[in-house]
Design a protein around this nucleic acid. Structure first.
Lengths: 230, 230
DNA sequence: CGGACGGTTGACACTAGTCAAATTGAGTGG
DNA sequence: CCACTCAATTTGACTAGTGTCAACCGTCCG
């Protein structure tokens, strides 16, 4: 997977970087490719690198002591992940990063970015922008989990995924996720997801397939997410 | 409520500020005092000020369309809140800030801090530190809500509160929160909190009073939080 | 052709929410 | 100091919503 330093400008945090900065970052970084199912890092590892996904798809997940998984977010190309270590020295990753498909990422030394931020206010600034949006999303999801029913939460997950990665076709939107994935993203079980999707299929909101959900009536799904329906 | 600019150094974000910086901040800020139950700001208001709590206690909460409340965090003196607007221009507060008791806070113009950050890397940096810790806490709480039982979550809330504000006495730890408060903090209902506390009282883990919980066996509570007990 | 994997479905258990009613306790005004 | 009031809390009865478990199905792929 080939890319030029300037491609990094697609990364939110590097949008205002100079060409020199980008060159320096790439020169001091390494490219890591891993296979589907493998991990860039595990929860608890020392956060010596932060990553920019170049290709593929990665999920960030936390595991509780009992081994249950919670999906915090899915990363798409040119998004940064594992960046908390760039701020806090000697930090550990608070989550694990697993490839959902064969993936390539640029691994940047945390200390490098840390040093660069000291003399480049725009860098700190854009990283803070990213962090604020992340805080807000987590707050919203926390509230949803605390106050909304499973059905609404699954609907929200599908809508969020649609915005982030949905493939629009003539007849709706395609999403490629297993029931298990959706369950982890909405804080429920794969059984419940299966039942909810079956119900929605009866109501002509979606068509469900193997590791696949096809949204036929996005507007109806919004109504479910809002809790208006049913 | 009188304070000197140097008191601000207790604020995490200002720990490395110069005396001049602190003076400048205080000169350009106003002190606001509000009564118990009133709000410093509401979710959705334009985030023109960020606050440093000088005295009292404030809770940050989100309200969903149906009016249900979720408690995101409690603020104690010399903690900053409402800071997201300092990063993102023209942002709205993502949560409301309500005083749990008569409270005084320093209201700092978002634009002022924003400008100061451009020339003072330490400021951006310390603000990022705050934001990372907040992200990690939200992630942990999200995971707890998704995977743990009510009893465990209430135990965790009590332990968290103990660390943040518990008054240690000879025979345990005192916390002053109503059942409703605890319910909002753990994502459940006041009825369930009441039942759980009654059960714990039978098991000699706590003694419960009106707007009051006295932890007699912190170690046992930890076991409950870990899911080992019961 | 035979697994393995993802998904579906039924039966059942059980957690935690809802609602109503009773009880307690703190503070207030006489 | 004693009613009185009101909010906080408790408790019981009931149940909706989800999780759990097990059996089974279909399909993809070696």
């Amino acid at each position: 997977m080939k890319f030029s330093p300037k491609d990094l400008r697609q990364v939110t945090v590097f949008q205002n970087a100079t060409d020199d900065d980008l060159d320096q970052i790439v020169r001091n970084s390494i490219t890591r490719s891993i296979e589907e199912g493998e991990f860039f890092f595990f929860q608890g590892d020392p956060a010596n690198y932060l990553y920019v996904l170049v290709s593929g798809q990665v999920k960030l997940l936390q595991t509780n002591p009992g081994g249950q998984q919670v999906n915090l977010r899915t990363i798409y190309p040119w998004q940064m992940f594992g960046a908390l270590g760039a701020v806090r020295e000697q930090a550990d990753y608070p989550a694990s990063a697993q490839a959902l498909e064969n993936s390539t990422a640029l691994a940047i030394q945390s200390t490098l970015l840390h040093e660069m931020m000291e003399t480049r206010p725009y860098l700190s600034f854009d990283l803070m922008l990213l962090m604020t949006s992340y805080i807000q999303e987590m707050q919203a999801r926390y509230r949803e989990l605390a106050t909304e029913r499973v059905e609404q939460r699954i609907a929200r997950v599908l809508l969020r995924l649609t915005a982030q990665s949905g493939q629009k076709t003539d007849e709706g939107i395609d999403l490629a996720f297993s029931r298990q994935d959706l369950a982890e993203m909405s804080g429920t079980t794969l059984y419940t997801v299966s039942r909810v999707l079956a119900d929605w299929e009866r109501r002509d909101l979606v068509r469900a397939g193997r590791e696949q959900v096809h949204i036929t009536n996005p507007h109806g799904l919004v109504r479910v997410a809002e809790g208006l329906e049913k």
